[in-house]
């Protein structure tokens, strides 16, 4: 901020000829500082995305690189592949359940914590703590908690219920779609529980910050207008929190679409691929099966999936800037 102000003053005082020189020097500095990271990102991020895209339309499906052009062969193979269809199904249901629950839990808990109760920071830390763990740790812990022969089931035995958790191979409300049964895989619920447990703290923190940013005057004004507490919540607070919800959705979406470590540590692909996701498939097919082109195609499809969420966000935020 300070700099901006000082340059503005500069601009006003300097005659026109000098102004041109000053700007070019500033620009030069800016370019000099940006250039290294810009070049690195162009090569190591966008360059390799391009490279992956190129491999994904090649015939490189053994240890020996083969860059002959294969067209969309690898993509066609994937979309006909039982495992990949199952992966897409799992990703859809995982993403919906995960984002939905993280938002609901985060909003609910932050509203409760915002009631100015005693020991607020204690509860806040409790809920935030799981976020400090890595997904691998979460995966290992929940693998045992939700293992059908140990963990929760030992306790649930008292009530005579024995859910099979992530080993359940049933698909709820399934119908034939391609070669798979499309519906909610019961096993994915176990993974969702673990992921929500870990990431709720994040949305809680976001919403809490948002709630703290709402001035008391707004609520007062609504109360004076005769709004009930529920109406205030519904008509005043939630609309103000919309940008936060958008951020939470974007961040959670890119986590859930690219998820790998949690699944890998907790359930693996699962019987009949009920808990498999594109990330795990990509790793296994590329580095175990040496299907480099197929693996690259999966990577590109994952990139496009994330882009569905990110691109509209980037466009709207650019509009906001203008």
């Amino acid at each position: 901020m300070k700099q901006e102000i000082s340059t503005n003053q500069h601009l006003e005082r300097q005659p026109k000829l000098n102004k041109k020189k000053k700007i070019s020097k500033d620009k030069l500095m800016a370019i000099a500082f940006l250039a290294p990271s810009f070049i690195l990102i162009v090569i190591f991020v966008y360059g390799f995305i391009g490279w992956t895209g190129w491999v994904s339309v090649s015939n490189w499906n053994t240890l020996v690189p083969d860059f002959s052009f294969a067209g969309l062969k690898n993509y066609i193979y994937l979309f006909n592949d039982y495992r990949f269809q199952a992966d897409l199904r799992n990703t859809v249901f995982f993403t919906i359940l995960f984002i939905g629950l993280v938002i609901i839990m985060g909003l609910g808990l932050s509203t409760l914590i915002d009631q100015k109760l005693k020991g607020e920071s204690f509860f806040r830390n409790i809920f935030l703590f799981p976020m400090a763990l890595s997904f691998v740790v979460t995966g290992v812990v929940w693998q045992w908690l939700l293992n059908p022969s140990t963990g929760f089931n030992q306790f649930l035995q008292v009530f005579g219920i024995q859910p099979k958790w992530y080993t359940d191979t049933n698909i709820l409300a399934g119908f034939e779609w391609g070669s798979i049964e499309f519906g909610l895989p019961v096993a994915i619920i176990a993974v969702v529980i673990a992921a929500v447990w870990q990431m709720t703290g994040f949305s809680l923190a976001m919403y809490l910050a948002g709630l703290r940013g709402i001035p008391e005057e707004l609520r007062e004004a609504a109360r004076i207008d005769g709004a009930s507490e529920f109406q205030i919540y519904r008509k005043v607070i939630l609309p103000i929190l919309t940008p936060i919800t958008v951020s939470v959705v974007i961040i959670m979406a890119h986590i859930s679409l690219k998820i790998f470590d949690l699944i890998y540590a907790m359930t693996g692909s699962g019987a009949n691929f009920v808990t498999d996701v594109p990330g795990v498939y990509m790793f296994e097919t590329t580095f175990r099966g040496n299907y480099y082109a197929n693996g690259s195609a999966i990577a590109i499809i994952m990139l496009l999936l994330v882009a569905i969420f990110i691109v509209p966000y980037l466009i709207t935020s650019r509009k906001g800037d203008n």
């Binding site: 499906n61 053994t62 039982y82 495992r83 191979t169 692909s269 019987a271 009949n272 691929f273 296994e284 097919t285 175990r288 099966g289 040496n290 299907y291």
Partner: peptide
């Protein structure tokens, strides 16, 4: 390895 990867996938599906 490529064939093995596919057999392992097929076995995983078959077991269920």
């Amino acid at each position: 390895e490529g064939y093995l990867t596919k057999v392992n996938q097929a076995v995983n599906i078959f077991v269920t």
